[in-house]
Amino acid sequence: EELVKLQGERVRGLKQQKASAELIEEEVAKLLKLKAQL
C-alpha cells in the first residue's frame, strides 16, 4: 500500500514537471500493477 502511495506521488510529480507522455504512461502502468497486487 505504501508503494502505491509513493508511485502515485511520482506520477503526480512527473505530470507537474510536464514529463514526456511515454514516461508518465510507464509510471502509471507500474502504479496500476501495484494496485492490482493489493
Rank of each mutant, 00 (worst) to 15 (best):
E1M: 07
E1D: 03
E1R: 00
E1G: 02
E1A: 01
E1S: 00
E2C: 00
E2H: 06
E2Y: 02
E2Q: 02
E2I: 03
L3W: 00
L3V: 03
L3F: 04
L3K: 08
V4S: 05
V4R: 02
K5Q: 10
K5N: 07
K5T: 06
K5P: 02
L6K: 14
L6W: 04
L6S: 07
L6E: 13
L6D: 12
Q7R: 01
Q7C: 01
Q7A: 04
Q7N: 02
G8P: 05
G8F: 04
E9W: 01
E9P: 01
E9R: 02
E9S: 04
E9M: 05
E9V: 01
E9D: 11
E9H: 01
E9K: 04
R10C: 03
R10A: 08
R10V: 11
V11G: 08
V11S: 05
V11E: 12
V11Q: 11
V11C: 00
V11F: 01
V11I: 10
V11T: 07
V11W: 03
V11K: 05
R12Q: 13
G13H: 12
G13A: 15
G13M: 15
G13D: 12
G13R: 11
L14G: 06
L14H: 03
L14A: 12
L14S: 08
K15W: 03
K15L: 07
K15C: 05
K15T: 11
K15P: 08
K15G: 04
K15A: 08
K15E: 14
Q16M: 11
Q16A: 14
Q16F: 03
Q16S: 11
Q16K: 11
Q16L: 09
Q17R: 06
Q17V: 05
K18S: 10
K18G: 14
K18R: 09
K18W: 01
A19T: 06
A19M: 10
A19G: 05
A19R: 05
A19H: 04
S20Y: 00
S20R: 10
S20I: 00
S20P: 13
A21L: 09
A21S: 12
A21P: 14
A21V: 07
A21W: 02
A21Y: 06
E22A: 12
E22R: 10
E22S: 11
E22T: 13
E22P: 10
E22Y: 04
L23G: 07
L23W: 02
L23P: 11
L23E: 11
L23K: 11
L23V: 14
I24V: 10
I24T: 10
I24E: 07
I24R: 06
E25G: 09
E25I: 01
E25Q: 12
E25T: 10
E25Y: 02
E25S: 11
E26Y: 05
E26T: 14
E26Q: 13
E26N: 10
E27P: 06
E27A: 08
E27R: 00
E27S: 04
E27T: 00
E27N: 08
V28L: 04
V28E: 15
A29W: 00
A29S: 08
A29K: 04
A29P: 03
A29Q: 12
K30W: 01
K30L: 06
K30I: 05
K30T: 05
K30S: 05
L31D: 15
L31N: 15
L31S: 11
L31W: 06
L32D: 14
L32A: 15
L32R: 13
L32M: 14
K33Q: 11
K33R: 08
K33T: 08
L34M: 13
L34E: 13
L34H: 09
L34P: 14
L34T: 09
L34A: 09
L34N: 09
K35L: 09
K35N: 15
K35Q: 15
K35V: 15
K35T: 15
K35D: 15
Q37V: 06
Q37I: 04
Q37N: 09
Q37H: 05
L38N: 09
L38F: 02
L38M: 14
L38E: 14
